[in-house]
Every structure is written in structure tokens, then in C-alpha cells.
């Protein structure tokens, strides 16, 4: 480890700044425990000069939301020639966009809830009501509505009746210019972390998420105690294998690198639906990746220290 050091980027200006700061603190502490020297930097106007001047041996991106996952920061790091943990810029741009990732995976035969994606302008220009009616006809109710990009469940809503739809649209469009409407899958939610190792991508044990309120929203995510987690998920062996395989396939098919987390829902009939993939998974005290690591008998620090080594070596 000697004099090697990494910069952990956290904060930024996305809606998930608060979550990101917590992720940053957590992964920094974990890295230090594993013997890696760490500086924690915010992503603001001082970042580029700092990167140029101090040139860390590698960067760990703990930014969530736009700038951290849409390829922007990755592009900058590639321009500067600084190694970083995570998926390359070009792939981020595609995989971060939920409809794009869903389309790619569906083409490859992966099961994902049926969906439509529409920009705000389409509703304005074509008249909202007929478009909303067509959406309900196609996807049924309840329906899942969320911003086409983003995380932490911000703007994500379960719409149970057609009458709620206009309000929910306004809520989702507050976070993004386009909305992703999906068939709602009633079932058990699981999250599977995938980490690249010497033998290729490997799934960590799935974490099952059981929010007390029934909805895994922002409050249920970041208030300790409001959600019960089962690690490993309470799935029979065959389903557990299917879930792990889905996450590894998503990682491979989308071309992700180092680490990813796939969110999925297991329906009552045992079908496994791909929901979305996270390029910069949450690393907070209440986040899923650290739980999965623990269940796998690995520490967060050793996983990220290993990924730092990989980043530097490539």
C-alpha cells in the first residue's frame, strides 16, 4: 500500500448530495481501515485544479445522481488520465439512463417490466389526458412512475388510480424532463451487488428489502429501522440463483466495470424482473452494498481496495 493514495469524490450538486456525502464518509473510513490513504473531495469548481495538481493514484466515485453516474465525472477523469473505480464514461451514459438500459437488456432477453418513457414536451404538445389514458391502457394499474434518470427513489411513486396520475406526473417531472412509467410488479424487492474479480463478475448475496410502510421510498431508505433487510434474501435456491444470474448478466450485457448493483423484483409467481442498475451504489450505513459485502464475509474496505488496485493496473 505504501504511499499510494486515493481521492474519494462525494457531495456534488445533485439531489442526492446528502446521501453521497454519507457514502463518501463511509467508504473513506472503510478504505483507511484497509490501509489505503484517502482524501475526501467535493465535486465543485475546485475539483479539477485539485486533481491536476495533486494527481491521486486513483479516484473512487461516491457521487450519486447525475454528475456521478451519467459519465460526466468519468469523462473528466479519462481526460486527465487518472484511474478510477467504476464503469467507463461512454457506458455510464447509456446504463445510467433507465429506459436505455431496460431496452438493451430486453433485447438480450432479460425480463423487465413493460414501460413507456415520455418527455414533458410530449404531454404538452399532444395533450396530457389522451397520453395518460393510453399509458394506463398499456401498463395497467397500479403503475410505477419515476424520473427517467436518478436515484434514492426521489420522484418515484406508485400510482394506484388514474385520478392520481396527473399529480404523480408533476411530482416525477420535478426531478427530470422525462418520465418513465412502468408496469408495477407486486412482489419481493431484492438488490444484488456485482463485483469484478479475477474470475470475472461475481454476485454477492442478494439483500431482500422489506419496508415497514410497504414502499421503499426516501424515508424508508435513510431512516434506520423503517426497513427490515434479509441477507441473504429469503428465496429458494433456484430463485436465488436466477436473481444472481440476472445481476451478473446485466453487468456483462451493459458492459459495466468493477462494481454495480442491480435492483430487481421477484413476482409472486417467481419471475425475476430487472428494475434498474446502479453505477455508483449507495455506501451509507443504511445502504445495500455494504450489507451484501458483510453477508459475503468481505469488508467494504477490502472490496474497494481491491477495485482500486484493478483501476490502477488497467
Amino acid at each position: 500500500m505504501s504511499d499510494r493514495w486515493v481521492a474519494v469524490l462525494a457531495g456534488g450538486l445533485s439531489h442526492e448530495r446528502d446521501v453521497s456525502l454519507r457514502s463518501g464518509r463511509r467508504v473513506s473510513a472503510a478504505l483507511r481501515q484497509s490501509g489505503v490513504a484517502v482524501e475526501e473531495w467535493d465535486a465543485d469548481a475546485s475539483l479539477l485544479p485539485k486533481l491536476r495538481e495533486h494527481r491521486p493514484d486513483a479516484v473512487v466515485i461516491a457521487l450519486h445522481g447525475g454528475e456521478g453516474e451519467n459519465g460526466s465525472i468519468q469523462t473528466i477523469l479519462e481526460l486527465l488520465g487518472i484511474p478510477y473505480v467504476g464503469t467507463d464514461a461512454g457506458t455510464c451514459r447509456r446504463a445510467w439512463d433507465k429506459p436505455t438500459a431496460k431496452a438493451e437488456l430486453r433485447r438480450a432477453g432479460v425480463l423487465t417490466p413493460d414501460w413507456v418513457v415520455l418527455p414533458q414536451s410530449a404531454f404538452r404538445e399532444l395533450g396530457a389526458q389522451p397520453v395518460l389514458d393510453a399509458m394506463v391502457e398499456r401498463l395497467g394499474l397500479p403503475m410505477m412512475l419515476k424520473p427517467d434518470q436518478g436515484g434514492s427513489a426521489l420522484g418515484a411513486q406508485v400510482v394506484r388510480s388514474a385520478a392520481e396520475l396527473p399529480t404523480a406526473m408533476v411530482g416525477s417531472l420535478a426531478y427530470s424532463d422525462a418520465v418513465l412509467a412502468e408496469q408495477f410488479i407486486d412482489g419481493v424487492e431484492v438488490a444484488v451487488t456485482v463485483v469484478d474479480g479475477p474470475g470475472g463478475p461475481e454476485a454477492l448475496p442478494a439483500v431482500e428489502i422489506a419496508p415497514a410502510s410497504g414502499v421503499y421510498d426516501y424515508t424508508a431508505r435513510y431512516t434506520a429501522g423503517l426497513t427490515t433487510f434479509h441477507t441473504p434474501a429469503r428465496l429458494d435456491d433456484a430463485t436465488a440463483a436466477k436473481v444472481a444470474e440476472l445481476a451478473v448478466s446485466a453487468h456483462r450485457l451493459l458492459g459495466l466495470r468493477d462494481v454495480s448493483r442491480t435492483d430487481a423484483v421477484v413476482s409472486a409467481t417467481g419471475e425475476v424482473y430487472f428494475i434498474e442498475v446502479n453505477l455508483s451504489p449507495g455506501l451509507t450505513e443504511t445502504s445495500l452494498l455494504p450489507m451484501a459485502a458483510e453477508a459475503a464475509g468481505r469488508s467494504l474496505g477490502s472490496i474497494y481496495a481491491g477495485l482500486v488496485d484493478r483501476a490502477i493496473a488497467r
Binding site: A224, T227, F229, H230, P232, R234, T239, E285
Partner: peptide
């Protein structure tokens, strides 16, 4: 039903608080 298997059950259940 895939989710009610008795096997690992509540072994790994936890509330973070």
C-alpha cells in the same frame, strides 16, 4: 411461492435500528 421458503428465513433479518 419462491419467497416464503422456510430455509434461511429470519436468520439474516435485520432492522438497522
Amino acid at each position: 411461492m419462491s419467497t416464503s421458503g422456510p430455509l434461511p428465513d429470519r436468520l439474516g433479518a435485520r432492522s438497522l435500528d
